[in-house]
Design a protein around this nucleic acid. Structure first.
Lengths: 163, 163
DNA sequence: TGAAATAACACCTTTCCGATCCTATATTCA
DNA sequence: TGAATATAGGATCGGAAAGGTGTTATTTCA
């Protein structure tokens, strides 16, 4: 695993389309599905969920459609993924359960929980620092989120998303 | 999503146990299962797969068991995950299919593929730089893998796994 | 020879992804 | 006003994958 679902992939395609269209232009699900060869009924469901998550705004009726609810650079990849497939959790015990129960009965004595939680934190931090703008405008400038410096390096060799 | 499977979680527990036990001490699946409250038959399957992936060595018969095939600091988290749940792929099109086919029919025209591939590369790079030694000896020194520097920073504020 | 352990299967249950369909509501336009 | 178009909110369903169990064969040591 460790991969996005198809739902999220379709959602990102739709959101990128909206980001490129701009805040003023209303785009219908059908237009997006036609242009990018995405199954229309599926995309409609996805845009509905994104609306419930307040990530897109909707206009009902003929000539209706969707626009982004915020500027693309204010929408993090983490928030988009969470809207479509629930909380990001590298390990299941990373997110507290609402009923206060534990995810597994060895949680307190688990020897790998602490280091895995740290990895979880790094991954979530990374996804939180990637914005929709960076996905939609891939040719953009170089001030993009960095990740994964190998051990020996000093940190002055930025590894950008746009390299 | 974006999470490890239970199989991998159990596998990491077993591997941490072996790493702590050292290269000379042979440990049976039963010992590990008893100590960490992991389902024995499941752990046996997992250790078998890790043996096929040449990550652990096995000793058959009475007094048999497993040891690590390499030092813990030479086993990357990426290789462990791949042994237990297949190639790491943030998006399905990240890994080329053996039959040369495409994962989806819009692969060539997909507007989000390129940026998502870059994110995939960062994540894989990160997982490749985390070693079993860091998971097994969480109290270890500070020369650990770094990840996810926010945009504005210079890179001289290391974010270590052990913080 | 028997007990203990891995090796290699086959098998089952549950969960959830991917996809489709239906009805209701709101808006536009002829 | 009515038809067409679009979103809103559900319910549903097949199939794949995860999660877990069992059986048998093989090897080794006491």
């Amino acid at each position: 695993m460790l991969s996005l679902t198809k739902k999220t992939e379709y959602g990102l395609i739709g959101l990128c389309h909206l980001a490129r269209a701009g805040a003023t232009q209303v785009t219908s699900a059908r237009e997006i599905a036609d242009e990018h060869k995405v199954p229309l009924p599926l995309l409609m469901n996805i845009l509905k969920e994104l609306h419930q998550a307040a990530i897109v705004k909707s206009v009902r009726g003929a000539k209706g459609g969707y626009t982004l609810a915020k500027p693309a650079h204010e929408l993090s990849l983490a928030s988009l993924v969470e809207a479509l497939e629930g909380p990001v959790k590298f390990v299941r015990c990373a997110e507290p359960r609402p009923d206060g129960e534990h995810h597994c009965d060895i949680e307190c004595s688990c020897i790998v929980r602490r280091p895995l939680m740290k990895i979880h934190d790094r991954m979530k931090e990374f996804l939180s620092n990637v914005t929709l703008a960076e996905l939609a405008f891939d040719n953009g400038p170089a001030q993009l989120t960095q990740i994964a410096y190998p051990k020996g390096r000093t940190g002055d060799e930025p590894t950008n998303l746009s390299r």
